[in-house]
Design a protein around this nucleic acid. Structure first.
Lengths: 338, 338
DNA sequence: TTGTAGGCGTTATCAT
DNA sequence: ATGATAACGCCTACAA
């Protein structure tokens, strides 16, 4: 049994109140008394009971993150990296991360309600926003502090704090890079349309085409589920139906790696007569069979920023929305011809 | 403000006790009463206050994981994958994961004491055991349920529950695979000796040599810190000091990928006149410039097993130690000649 | 079937 | 400078 204030009180001869104040650093306790109490507390290995503190309405020093079901895919390392990054970043500020996922029969929103409603966290990190995000609506309705990684779709208003990567800009940069290399028929593999970021990536693709006066062709767009296999399937389909293509942009690296496989099988030499590019710069990108040209998102740095921003939201309750857009970095490698 | 039992009591006209029992499914409440109460609870979006329950001595339905500082390396995706796997596995059983890391001035043990001492979790998952692991000693001293991924060093007793991968067997298999291919001078890049698993991997290497009547040479062993860069450095050193080597085993895939880079730079063709093999089968291994022969650990499945096992420990408090050794799988790819 | 009383460990308020 | 008391929200006797 861990020691309680009562134990220390008994052993020291002081009241629970005095012990509490001595250990909390109040200045209305006799220095000698404090020393005595601290010594005993150390002896007993005293750790304040977290639940009891929370029940007093104290802060939990805990931040919640819910991992959504579609991410339950080993390839999709977005959430795992985010989780680790957030854990480190939170630790720097004296916070812990409560990581949850929906049980078999529950929805993501259920988990938010359970975690937030049971008062286990001071705030939430919301990732992978989708159109009309019910999680955000819920958090706003119960006035729970939260920070979003991502933002609303281009046609909607983001009335919340967020930190996002400017993926429109990122996809535009990588598409332009391919166009500069002389490719005029560039296909793209997009994420499911439910995700808000899918729209930004498509917009970036279209903007690049427009800058080169190239007509946008919907038939050059395929859709995948962020996995290597889905990228492979989508690329096979594109290659067979649009044989004039000489380049493909995958909207994440895994789909791009899948596309590379399809392109190889179709008999092209990647980096020579066909170009492939990705997005994310996962570790595997740099070491792929042909190293992958891609766009880098600094996921760890984003974790740090999310935590820092969320803590100011928790502590200061700002009235205007903090919204930050990070410029991603184009990383040119062999898969686009070097 | 979230609704409390008191709110429901007031609104329904029943006492807090009756409301509590109605919502907890006790059978000594009038069905009509229960229905009435449940309706109001739903209206109010009632969620039981987690702290209040815990203070009652209830279970927290939370499992703790502490991420250690040396893992703060983007390449090292062990903890991030484990974290995600555990989160999903825990969710299936109605548990959440509390993820923590040491703050700047704190040790890993400090975090254990804080998390466990403050009664925030029902049990802990301990990973990456090292020699004379103080975390384990601490958990035993306070009688906190825990499951270990890993085990004590070969020369020590593992007096605790664990689930480990038989990495001795795994490294032996991959080393033998290289020996079978005719390599007689096989180097190895080992993890730091502080990790218990380093010893098993070295033992596996030595066992393979012994099976082929090849003398063990300490000068064929180099050490790395599990990162690509460290593997590169170690391999450069091996290649320059032991030019007769024709094969290198990296004790994880990242070090093996670093070794591949060094071997390439030394002018060899991997898979033809030089063989490299790794361990872990991270996603990047299959897609490396030369696909990497390696040993697969089913990290997600291990996450499931860890949670399942830990829950039985929490609930049944078994008197004998559950100890499971998983056989890893040799995955042969091009880097060893296919 | 329902209600009352007490306590989990901590902190805040109000006395002394 | 110190202590008694109440309260946070819930659960579990025990009583009615």
């Amino acid at each position: 049994m861990p020691a309680t204030l009562k134990d220390i009180a008994k052993k020291s001869g002081f009241s629970v109140t005095t012990v509490s104040r001595a250990l909390s650093g109040y200045d209305d306790v006799n220095p000698g008394t404090r020393e005595h109490i601290v010594t005993i507390a150390d002896e007993l290995g005293y750790q304040p009971n977290h639940s009891a503190r929370q029940l007093q309405g104290q802060k939990t020093h805990t931040i919640g993150l819910v991992i959504a079901p579609p991410a339950h895919n080993p390839d999709d390392d977005f959430y795992s990296l985010l989780l680790k990054g957030l854990t480190y970043a939170a630790a720097h500020s004296g916070y812990d991360i409560l990581a949850s996922a929906p049980a078999a029969d529950a929805t993501e929103l259920d988990v938010y309600q359970r975690i937030v409603g049971s008062k286990r966290v001071d705030g939430m990190v919301v990732a992978r926003t989708n159109r009309d995000d019910r999680r955000i609506a819920y958090l706003q309705s119960v006035d729970c502090p939260f920070i979003v990684h991502g933002r609303a779709a281009p046609d909607a208003t983001s009335n919340f704090h967020y930190i996002d990567v400017d993926s429109q800009q990122g996809i535009m940069a990588v598409t332009q890079h391919l166009l500069e290399r002389g490719h005029t028929h560039v296909g793209i593999i997009l994420p499911a349309e439910q995700f808000a970021f899918s729209q930004y990536r498509q917009a970036g693709y279209m903007a690049a085409l427009a800058a080169y006066n190239i007509m946008f062709r919907p038939e050059y767009c395929a859709y995948g589920t962020l996995t290597l296999d889905s990228g492979y399937t989508a690329a096979c389909q594109l290659l067979s139906q649009q044989p004039q293509l000489t380049a493909i942009v995958g909207c994440n690296d895994w789909m791009a790696l899948g596309a590379m496989k399809a392109v190889n099988e179709a008999g092209y030499t990647i980096g020579k007569d066909f170009a492939v590019a990705g997005y994310d710069d996962i570790p595997a990108a740099a070491h792929a069979s042909t190293s992958l040209t891609t766009v880098r998102q600094p996921i760890y740095a984003i974790g740090e920023m999310l935590i820092a921003r969320l803590l100011t939201i928790i502590n200061d309750d700002p009235t205007t929305f903090h919204q930050t857009l990070i410029e991603p970095e184009l990383v040119i490698r062999d898969s686009s011809g070097g």
